[in-house]
């Protein structure tokens, strides 16, 4: 135990250096990746607001990584005050491990998902292959790049969006399976994780269309080459809900429940929702949505609950080993 002291001291120095040691309270927000810029703005706004209303100086540390991996870390003891994920199964895991309340969905409005996104298409400039809707992705000769559903939340939403489209078009389970199989036949490579699919599409020049989150598509357009790509909205897509939760076990131990609760509530406030919209996530508040109507094309959205009976069922039927996805991938 002796060496704990120098290590603590070193960490303390590092913290000082990062300029967070002066705060009265420090929260750790464990989030999925590609939310850095978003939470940078949210954190700055919340810190200011909190100091104004309570006089307390608060600091917020961020952790970013793949959604499921982050959930695993929190379940194994990473001391997050709040978690902000991109699929509900990840927080369900935390509820099962007893670090988050079983009824976490009811703790905040909209099933504890303060903002949403959806799955859209990114095509090459001018849309040379004339890709308009999901049907076009199954046509012969179209190369489709999708994130790997086996290891990314983004990929799972893509898969479920395609499946849901087939169902919404009046198909039964067999028709949906056939549809998704034909789509995945057009997928030339599968990437490992993270941003692999995006790199393949944008940097390697492979594929005619990249299927990804709306906010990602906009981000790619902005960060990786304005004027090289076009965003195409399908007629129907999935409503990807990004759930949040207070990690009860940690906040009770640290005594930070009040702050953690307020932090997540801030995401629902008009100010928070405005920041949500600015980062191309779809806000929940109608007033904010209307103000940004130009950037969010209204398309028909279905939820995972509606078509698949919830994330747990979708996970079990489609993504578990030997599930539908594996059968489709091996038999394609």
């Amino acid at each position: 135990m002796k060496f704990a002291v120098p290590i603590r001291a070193l960490l303390g120095v590092a913290a000082l250096w990062a300029g967070i040691a002066q705060a009265d309270v420090t929260l750790l927000n464990v989030a999925y990746d590609v939310t850095r810029e978003f939470y940078k703005d949210i954190n700055a706004a919340f810190i200011e607001r909190w100091q104004k209303t309570t006089g307390e100086r608060i600091a917020i540390e961020q952790s970013h990584g793949g959604s499921s991996k982050q959930a695993m870390s929190v379940a194994s003891g990473l001391e997050a005050d709040v978690v902000t994920m991109n699929q509900a199964t990840d927080i369900d895991l935390l509820a099962r491990s007893g670090v988050v309340a079983q009824d976490w969905r009811k703790r905040f409005p909209y099933d504890s998902a303060p903002y949403t996104s959806t799955t859209v298409f990114l095509v090459r400039k001018g849309n040379p292959k004339n890709i308009r809707d999901w049907d076009d992705l199954t046509k012969p000769g179209i190369a489709v790049i999708v994130p790997n559903p086996k290891v990314t939340g983004n990929g799972r939403y893509t898969y479920l969006a395609a499946w849901g489209y087939a169902i919404k078009k009046g198909g039964d389970e067999a028709a949906a399976r056939d549809f998704v199989t034909r789509l995945f036949r057009n997928v030339p490579v599968r990437d490992g994780g993270g941003r692999g699919a995006t790199t393949t599409f944008t940097q390697r020049g492979m594929g005619d269309v990249l299927v990804t989150f709306e906010n990602e598509a906009v981000l790619i357009e902005r960060e990786l080459g304005t004027g090289q790509f076009d965003v195409v909205y399908p007629s129907i897509s999935v409503r990807a809900e990004a759930p949040v939760a207070v990690v009860d076990k940690v906040v009770d131990k640290k005594g930070t429940r009040k702050q953690a609760q307020a932090y997540l509530e801030f995401l629902y406030s008009p100010e928070g929702q405005e920041i949500v919209a600015r980062h191309f996530y779809r806000p929940r508040l109608d007033a904010v949505m209307q103000r940004h109507a130009g950037q969010f094309k209204p398309i028909q959205l279905f939820t995972i609950d509606e078509v698949f009976g919830g994330w747990a069922k979708a996970q079990q039927a489609h993504f578990a080993d030997g599930g539908m996805l594996d059968q489709i991938m091996v038999n394609r």
């Binding site: 590092a14 913290a15 990062a18 464990v30 540390e61 961020q62 952790s63 970013h64 991996k69």
Partner: peptide, 11 residues
């Protein structure tokens, strides 16, 4: 390292 880090920025 990625598994045991927790990925806390700056820490």
């Amino acid at each position: 390292v990625s598994v045991v880090s927790g990925h806390i920025r700056g820490r």
